[in-house]
Computed example of a mutant assay.
Amino acid sequence: MAFTLDRFDLPAFVAATLAEDLGDRGDITSAAVIPAEAVFTGVMDSRDAIIVAGLPIAEAFFRALDPDVEIERLVEDGDRVAPGTDLIRLRGKARALLTAERSALNTVQHLSGIATMARSYVDAIEGTGATLLDTRKTLPGLRVLEKYATRMGGATNHRMGLWDAAMIKDNHVAVAGSVAEAARRAVAAGIESIIVEVDRIDQIEPALQAGATHLLLDNMGPEVLREAVALVAGRVPTEASGGVRLDTIRAIAGSGVTYVSVGRLTQSAPAADIGLDFAQEGVA
């Protein structure tokens, strides 16, 4: 079955990425150094303990340049693997595989890094009842892939974009005049899902009375969060956000909030250490 993601054109992504790398002269190194008939086998492996993400996309890079490449996937996206684990084996035209190598690795390293960080946060709040959310703090053009990676790590996607829910934040409130007025305008516009950011306890009741369907409790410590959750009393979901770190998330999640959102999952995750080692079989 072909790998697909909603609102993501994989062939176009692969073509644009390869075009960026190839420029108008192509892979001059492989063309000069590697005989056209050379065949290589290779293994992509992880040097870190990771949560895997992005293998189908990496495979698409290799297939774009060598449609006949033989690929054996040894693990699946979402798997937790130990250092030294082989991820895929492949055999095909050496020039094509070497040309696609960097694009494939960049993608898997980046997405696996995101998935791995997401899983560490999910593990940290296990048993609290809270759900980990990602955010829109993504690289332009890579949002769908990065949010896919957070899912592979066990997180839940928040808004995919500006279109799928209203999120009233401090700048919206400043222009509208108040939390309540901003929420009322969203209700009047016919928006069903209205997330309202509040940074003070006294904003909660006006937001709820005006029609908020979800409260984002911004930069509140665990004690204030507990007070906020008690005041909301289950009327709408609550989300803790702002300044959440791996060493603080469990206390935040333990306050009783429905969700904890973490921007660093997509904004700051380090790339996983993944390599692709080729071993020449011979010349066809």
Rank of each mutant, 00 (worst) to 15 (best):
M1S: 15
M1I: 10
V14E: 05
A19Q: 14
L22S: 04
D24G: 11
D24P: 00
G26T: 00
S30K: 07
A31C: 00
A36H: 11
D45M: 14
R47G: 12
I51L: 12
I51C: 15
A53V: 04
P67T: 03
D68P: 07
V69T: 09
E70Y: 10
V75L: 12
L98S: 02
V108F: 07
H110L: 12
G113C: 04
Y121L: 13
E126M: 02
A130S: 12
A130Y: 07
A130H: 06
P140G: 09
R143N: 00
V144S: 03
Y148M: 02
G153K: 01
G161S: 15
G161N: 13
L162V: 07
W163N: 08
V175W: 13
R184L: 13
R185I: 14
A189D: 11
E192L: 10
S193Q: 08
I195M: 07
D199R: 02
D202W: 09
I204F: 07
P206M: 14
L208H: 08
L208C: 07
A210P: 06
L215E: 07
V224P: 01
A228R: 05
V229A: 07
V232W: 03
V232R: 05
A233W: 04
P237D: 03
V244L: 07
A253G: 01
S255G: 09
V257E: 05
V257A: 13
R264F: 02
D273H: 09
I274E: 04
Q280R: 15
G282M: 13
